[in-house]
Structures are given as structure tokens and as C-alpha cells.
């Protein structure tokens, strides 16, 4: 640089830009402070019994959030398992087995999958998926796998399984997109090493491709899990909205985000409203934790390059 003194207009410009950054941080702080101040009454009233309480009955002033935590994690976990198997499988298919022509078409279709709004998935879930589960899917699971407690219970259609399936579908695009980028980044010479030893495509994937990208894929899975935990609309439409804890995945449940969607505007007492804010706070903390963990994992493998 030939002149050390920064130009005045440059300094003004940099200052202006800094304001935008401050504004963003401010938005974040408002978010956090609203949740904390809103839930203060509930935090002081219940301590940790709020999280461990199993009964949620505002009419009787009983506020236990455990059923929502349970429903949130179980439904997201079902989604996670399904979308990991299907999504990583699809990513392997597209990067290791695919013909370029088909891959291009599939990419457009997968973009479309990501673009469908959650409320439309919820609508489809409620009127297409749930009736199918009630009439075909769940009875089949019950006869085949009824020995496992998860698949043994009264059949409703709506419930944890329906919510898990919808979440799985909604998690797919992220998992596929990130996994594809990670799989494409596996160095070709490592793959050639496996092929030159006589490995089939499958064996190459197992020996080199997956071991090389597994940490990043774990990051992608955590990221989409974090997002699934907070999905309100689609889940509300299919989970059944009943604050119970049941082993059977066929039973209705409720989640943190969907109890907010259903009850936030109905809260009739200060304590009721405050305990809903506390549910929001819990959701915020969980989302931040998963977001941070997944970012760290993906950074670790991609050398801070932005894959997401």
C-alpha cells in the first residue's frame, strides 16, 4: 500500500458497514433476552423440575416439559435415522455410481425437494401419509415387528412415527447436499489406490470414501437434526398433540415447537405464558448446541471452507 492513511470515505464506509454488524448482533441479543426475561417467572417457580416434570396440564397449573422433550427427540431421532440411511445412500449413488446426465436431473429434483414449504409437507403428511400409516403402514409394522415395544400399541395414524417420517423427509435435502459435497471432495488418488488394488465400487466406498468423509457427514447429520428439533408446523399437523410419554411410536405425542404453535396465543395466565417462554428457551439452547457442534465438525473437515 502506498499511502498508509486510510482514505476518509473508506473510513466512513467501514463505519457504516460496522453498523450493520452491530444491528445483527443486536437482533441476536434481543432474541436471547426475550426468551430469558419471558421465562424468568417460570424458571424461578419450577427450577429443574420443569424439565423433569411429566405432567403438562395448564388447567391444573402443572407444567412439566418432559413429554415435549421426549416427543421432540424421539421424532427427530426417527427422522435422523431414516434420512441418514436414505440421504447418505442417495449421495453415494449420485457421486460414485451415477451417470452425469441422471445426476443433473436428480440435482434439480432435490433442489425442488428442499424448496417445498414445511406447511405443505405437513398438509401432505396429514392427508396422505397419516391415512396410509393408519391403514397400511402401522398395521404391517405391528404384525411384523410387534415384539419390539416401539411397534406395539394402539394405532392412530398421527403420532411420533408420522412426525418422524415427515421430519426425515424434510432433513433429506440438507443431508444429501452436504454429503455429496463431502464425497466429491474425497481425493481421487485415494480412490484410485483402492481401485488399483482391485476394489469394486462398493469396496472402494467402504475402504476410502466413507472413512474419509465420515466426520463431515456426522456434521451434516447433526446440523439437520438441529433443524428438525425446531420444526413446528409440519410436526404439529401430524404428531397428535398430546403431552404424553409412550414407548409405542404409534402413539400421539407432542414436541417443544408444536406446543408453542398450539398454545402460545392461548396462554391465559402469566405462569402459563412464562412456562411456554421457557420451552422456547430450552428449544433455543438445544438448537444453538446442535448448530455449533455441527459447524465445528464440518469446519474441521473442510478447513473452514463454507460447505453449507
Amino acid at each position: 500500500m502506498n499511502n498508509m492513511r486510510k482514505h476518509d470515505s473508506d473510513r466512513l464506509f467501514a463505519g457504516t458497514l460496522f453498523l450493520f454488524a452491530v444491528l445483527l448482533i443486536l437482533l441476536g441479543l434481543i432474541m436471547v433476552s426475550v426468551m430469558i426475561s419471558g421465562s424468568w417467572k417460570s424458571i424461578t417457580a419450577f427450577d429443574f423440575s420443569f424439565l423433569s416434570g411429566q405432567i403438562w396440564n395448564p388447567l391444573r397449573h402443572s407444567y412439566g416439559a418432559l413429554p415435549f422433550l421426549y416427543g421432540t427427540f424421539v421424532s427427530s431421532l426417527i427422522g435422523l435415522i431414516l434420512s441418514t440411511v436414505v440421504g447418505v445412500g442417495t449421495a453415494i449413488l449420485l457421486t460414485q455410481f451415477g451417470h452425469i446426465k441422471y445426476v443433473k436431473i436428480a440435482t434439480i429434483l432435490l433442489d425442488a425437494l428442499a424448496a417445498i414449504p414445511s406447511v405443505v409437507y405437513g398438509l401432505w403428511g396429514l392427508f396422505v401419509l397419516v391415512p396410509w400409516l393408519r391403514n397400511t403402514g402401522e398395521p404391517l409394522l405391528k404384525t411384523e415387528l410387534g415384539a419390539i415395544p416401539f411397534f406395539n400399541g394402539q394405532i392412530w395414524g398421527v403420532g411420533l412415527l408420522a412426525a418422524g417420517l415427515i421430519l426425515g423427509i424434510m432433513m433429506l435435502p440438507t443431508i444429501i447436499t452436504v454429503s455429496r459435497k463431502l464425497l466429491d471432495n474425497v481425493p481421487q488418488d485415494l480412490q484410485d489406490g483402492a481401485i488399483a488394488l482391485g476394489a469394486t465400487r462398493t469396496e472402494k466406498v467402504r475402504m476410502v470414501v466413507l472413512p474419509y468423509s465420515r466426520v463431515g457427514i456426522l456434521g451434516a447429520v447433526l446440523l439437520s437434526f438441529g433443524r428438525a428439533l425446531g420444526e413446528a408446523i409440519a410436526v404439529t399437523l401430524v404428531i397428535g398433540n398430546s403431552p404424553t410419554i409412550s414407548t409405542s411410536l404409534f402413539e400421539p405425542g407432542d414436541s417443544l415447537a408444536s406446543v408453542l404453535a398450539n398454545q402460545f396465543l392461548e396462554a391465559s395466565t402469566h405462569l402459563y405464558l412464562s412456562s411456554l417462554y421457557e420451552i422456547g428457551l430450552v428449544l433455543l439452547i438445544v438448537a444453538v448446541l446442535f448448530h455449533t457442534a455441527s459447524k465445528l465438525l464440518i469446519w474441521r473437515v473442510s478447513g473452514r471452507a463454507r460447505i453449507l
Binding site: 438441529g226 413446528a232 408453542l260 422456547g280 428449544l283 433455543l284 438448537a287
Partner: peptide, 8 residues
């Protein structure tokens, strides 16, 4: 902020 549950 662009990734947290939008209901929050």
C-alpha cells in the same frame, strides 16, 4: 439467526 427454529 437464519437457522434457529423460526417459531422462536
Amino acid at each position: 439467526l437464519s437457522g434457529i427454529p423460526s417459531i422462536l
